[in-house]
Write a protein that binds this DNA or RNA. Structure first.
Length: 423
RNA sequence: GGAAAGUUGGCAGAGUGGUCGAAUGCGGCGGUCUUGAAAACCGUUGUCUGUAACAGGACCGGGGGUUCGAAUCCCUCACUUUCCGCCA
């Protein structure tokens, strides 16, 4: 959520930057400013009545104590009208406040100055590419066929148990998953992230805090009986640990990592691009979340990007890094790097990580603040990144490393899997 | 699932209708003392909103009500804790 004070003072700039984000409803900016002004003038009026009512009440108290009953009664009679006036104001203020808030939350985050203008994925900027795009030999299989051939991932079984998008990992397939989770967590620990285990069902306050609610409601599975949501990413519970928290400057940087399953409804996604492991309703992910001083957040974003790249290098997967254009960025992000891995068999790039700086967009909702050196309250900056999402990594590992003999497990994973070959 | 109690400032914990934005303790900050530190002592210490600065306004789990006046009384919702039941 943007800060209204910032919009008030930087109207032109806000509009310009929203244009970079390809935001279609620029009129909302003036709408929110209009509501803000209306709201504030109404508040001034209502508060002056409150002030009068308060001082009258105080006076009555004093008179009563002095035993001057008649005088007190006289003021009492006058005071009766305040109540009616205040009631009228609150009746207007309530709906107006709601309208204001509804409008304000419809404004997405402002993109950072490095974010390129653009509509969609076509306009993303390729920052770098690493590793050769190996040509697989004739007869190489996509991962879903490899999964069937070695009987390690069973999509049909998942359909029976739950539905499409809920695969069952079997034998070495399951063990590879577990190995990757442990590998990613160990690496994150070594990089200074504290490991946390968090709930995967969250309440609506948490959904709001990180920006999934109210807009992305349809993306999440909702457990109506208990009014809870299955998390689409560990970002939600981990970042919400800092909701309503006042930090000290020396607490920074706060680095947490969590492994969780993630659940996404992905309504309306079908076709070749969602085949196999490409897009699932349930998948595993190790997530990084940092809470940092505003001055350092872009430094930290680079650091996180490099960290994610180091994982991909260790796994020997060719990858590229994209800086997302305004139009392709998420609602809440100020700048995002996507890491994509080359799927040799599908001959296309697959997103395996997304690293974002949210600046104060989340912390303003979360009320996650710190006292700065001058003793003033400031909103923290929050960042997160996948390190990494498993399914597409698994897909690429299977495809890249297929040989006549079987699938060769990358060296760094062997201590974790306990086997070198899937055959 | 049943029963009871509770929700107050960074934390602990007083406060049952007016001088309560809230005692006290801890913690934090500043100072005295000390070569330095600790202890002790003194002072200070909530958030949001608003103003050029004052002033003013709001906040004692959320919402509503009673009253001239509510942390305090009433209604309602949510959550937490404890005991019993069930259970990995």
């Amino acid at each position: 959520m943007l800060q209204i004070s910032y919009i008030r003072e930087n109207r032109e700039e806000v509009i310009d930057r929203l244009k970079v984000k390809n935001f279609g409803q620029l009129g909302l900016v003036d709408e929110v400013l209009r509501l803000d002004e209306e709201l504030r003038s109404l508040k001034v009026a209502s508060e002056s009545i409150s002030a009068e009512a308060n001082s009258a009440a105080k006076k009555i108290g004093e008179l009563m104590r002095q035993g001057k009953k008649e005088e007190a009664e006289a003021i009492k009679a006058q005071s009766a009208s305040y109540k009616e006036q205040l009631k009228q104001y609150t009746e207007q203020l309530g709906p107006l406040e709601a309208k204001f808030f509804d409008t304000l939350v419809q404004l997405p985050n402002l993109p950072y100055h490095l974010v390129p203008e653009g509509k969609d994925a076509e306009d993303n900027e390729v920052v770098l590419q690493h590793g050769d795009l190996v040509e697989l030999p004739e007869g190489a299989l996509p991962h879903w066929e490899l999964a069937a051939k070695y009987d390690i991932i069973d999509f049909e079984l998942g359909v029976k148990v739950s539905g499409a998008g809920f695969p069952v990992y079997k034998g070495k397939g399951a063990r590879l998953q577990r190995a990757l989770i442990n590998f990613f967590l160990d690496k994150a620990n070594a990089a200074g992230y504290r490991e946390v285990q968090v709930p995967i069902l969250v309440n609506s306050d948490s959904g709001f805090g990180t920006g999934q609610l109210p807009d992305k409601e349809g993306q999440m599975y909702y457990v109506g009986n208990d009014d809870m949501y299955l998390i689409p990413t560990a970002e939600v519970p981990v970042t919400n640990m800092y909701r309503d928290v006042i930090l000290k400057e020396e607490d920074f940087p706060i680095k947490n990592t969590a492994y969780t399953p993630c659940f996404r409804r992905e309504a309306g996604s079908y076709g070749a691009h969602v085949r196999g492991l490409n897009r699932l309703h349930q998948f595993d992910k190790v997530e990084l979340v940092q809470v940092v001083h505003p001055k350092r957040s872009y430094e930290v974003l680079e650091e996180m990007s490099l960290y994610v790249q180091s994982l991909l290098k260790e796994l020997r997967l060719p990858y590229r890094v994209l800086r997302l254009c305004g139009g392709d960025m998420s609602f809440t992000s100020a700048m995002t790097y996507d890491m994509e891995v080359w799927s040799a068999a599908q001959k296309r790039w697959l997103e395996v990580s997304s690293v974002s700086n949210f600046e104060t967009y989340q912390s303003n909702r979360l009320k996650a603040r710190f006292k700065d050196a001058d003793g003033k309250m400031q909103l923290v900056h929050t960042l997160n990144g996948s390190a990494l999402a498993l399914p597409r990594i698994v897909a690429c590992i299977l495809e890249e490393n297929q040989t006549e003999r079987g699938i060769k497990i990358p060296d760094v994973l062997v201590p974790y899997t306990g086997f070198e070959w899937i055959d």
